[in-house]
Design a binder for these strands. Sequence first.
DNA 1: GGAGGTAGTGAGTGTACGGTCACTCATATG
DNA 2: CATATGAGTGACCGTACACTCACTACCTCC
Lengths: 184, 184
Amino acid sequence: MGKVLSTAEVRRETVVASAIRAFSRSGYLGTPIAKVAEEARISTAYVFKLFPGKEALFVAALERCFELVLEALEAGAAGATEQTPEGVLDAMGDAYAHLIADRDLLMLQVHAQSASDVPEVRQALQRGLARVTEFAASRSGADDSSVQRFIAYGQLCHLIVTVGVENIDSNWARLLSEGITHPA
Amino acid sequence: MGKVLSTAEVRRETVVASAIRAFSRSGYLGTPIAKVAEEARISTAYVFKLFPGKEALFVAALERCFELVLEALEAGAAGATEQTPEGVLDAMGDAYAHLIADRDLLMLQVHAQSASDVPEVRQALQRGLARVTEFAASRSGADDSSVQRFIAYGQLCHLIVTVGVENIDSNWARLLSEGITHPA
DNA sequence: GGAGGTAGTGAGTGTACGGTCACTCATATG
DNA sequence: CATATGAGTGACCGTACACTCACTACCTCC
């Protein structure tokens, strides 16, 4: 927090950023550390000096991902035109939809769910989901079922993107993405 | 359809069943064909005689998965106490929750989303989602936004299982799983 | 200028896995 | 019996990848 970052710690942060991009493209098992290293303009060996192993790197990326999501929700809530519970929830939803237009943070969460049989990954997911849910509830003041719906539609959003519903011209496709904010 | 199955085709079906179990446990990339073969009491080489490759086997498993889901929804709808749109949707929701108590069909869908960068997998997902959505809409007669909500809460269900919300004793966890039918 | 620590790397090792191939065994048919 | 066909397998190959280690380049402070 108050501590000045050493060069290695700065490096770690850039590597985490690269890891988010790389892992989001091909998932936990599908992404070799070498790809992350390449993306960070660093040797593969050095990645292992900065992180104890692939698992820890993935978890670090996932944690950063949730941090970014929370920041976006916070900003969205602050910019809500109506500060009613539903108004705030809607604003957070829009902010989330806007944030994940680049797909990186979204896909990383999807891949993390798929890798949730790794205990550390599952725990990171739990922590992230806890923070998001608790923040959405307390910041909006909405009742439980509204918050539950908020999370559920977030997941629907993930489905829409992974399946590529957006570029299907069909009734069922329109039905699913109705009201989900477009990446204009 | 009317054709009598040859032994090889029977074999293919049992292998698909094994594939569902194996892939659901460790995902597309995390599951070696050898594990599927072992589960089916068959040599690895023979799996490659029955299916052109890993990708095709995974897709076959995914397609079977959606078939089972549709059957469950159909049965659930038929057993609905009230044949109103909302009543039928609720019954289908309960049937789905009951079906995926064993986690196999659920996890397979999650892993498929993570592997959706493989075109064949993405297309299989599209077909499956299309059939499920269209069936839910036409069989229940509910309006679009209700069907959308139905799918969204299905995804929430996936999230709850993958992150293991059920065995967390905390407010946010209860909030998320409220009203989702338990595997009693 | 040299001693010691920190950033960073090249070249490897062991292993797991997708896919292939040459083969065996059982059955059926004439 | 001879032969053909399809079920089923063991042994193998090439490659990709997580992780290691011995090493160099640089920086800083005396």
